[in-house]
Amino acid sequence: MQLRLNTTIRLRSYLFLFIAAPLSMTSAVEEMQDMEMAADGMSAAPHAQAGVTQQELALFEAAQLVMKNHCYNCHGATKQKGDLRLDQEVAATTGGESGVPSIVPGDAHASYVVERMLLPREDEDAMPPESKTAVTEAGIQAIVAWIEAGAVWPDMHALRKRISTYVEIDDPETEAIIDAIDSVGGKAEYNSWDDPRIRVDLSFTDEGKLNEALAELSKFGDQLIWLDVSGLDLPSSFYADLGQYTNLQRLHLDRTKVSDADLAQLVGLKQLVYLNLYGTQITDAGLVHLKQIQSLEKVFLGGSKVSSTAAKQLARSKEELVVVHR
């Protein structure tokens, strides 16, 4: 690191510029950190389970729903009648005053909590007490099923994973190409959160990095469905290579130097629905090729050299085709 500090005055102004703000943020930062730690604390379970099955999770949640409604008011975080807490794994499996474990994983009949719930309502030991709402048959069954299956208490982490149904598309090969394109200023992304096909926008690729980006792009092959190369100065090889993107549906060539002859390379794109040629040098002669793309539904010819007669003729050539021209 090279530094030229000529005067102390300059140093002071630096200090003011860059140090004052972070310092004033300190308290906010600490607060944030506390919050983040609290959040992390929740995910750190007393003993993390390697894998909780979906079935175990479902059983746990069903049982918890019942116990929350019927047990935790008196045996929970706020009150612990008979020194008993049922909302925590350790406490529930040790038991309260009686010393009898409330929950014996894998054995519902040995679990005191089940025994007390199954007592006749008028019995003075019946739980919940007679004055409170009784647990329904189905509710007891849910608790029994959970205990019988091992009374698994999933940690927060497992619970979180379970709540979010989305397992993000996580294909390392694709991710690597996405990252590579990202590193040269382009943008590649999955079509949506449940769709592994790829959209790529290279129009903001860093200067001088276009060829690199195009080389990465070709790795997507038939995975590519959208491509935006608008405004770029593309090498002629780009058009020759287009045929490999057999599933390409949308292609932005707007404001490029695409020529009439280049359009011949698009004929092989059997899925192409959308073609943007806005602001290009395309003339009437180029439209011949477009007529051969059967899948085409929308063509944008605004700001090109195409005459309105030719544009209208193109639009008439196919029933489904919308030609936007001004």
Binding site: A58, A142, I169, D171, P196
Partner: peptide
């Protein structure tokens, strides 16, 4: 659904039976 692993699928059966 193709790539996404749909955890709800496994749950549907279990969830319905138990709750």
């Amino acid at each position: 659904r193709k790539f996404i692993q749909y955890s709800a699928k496994a749950l549907l059966g279990v969830g319905l039976a138990s709750v």
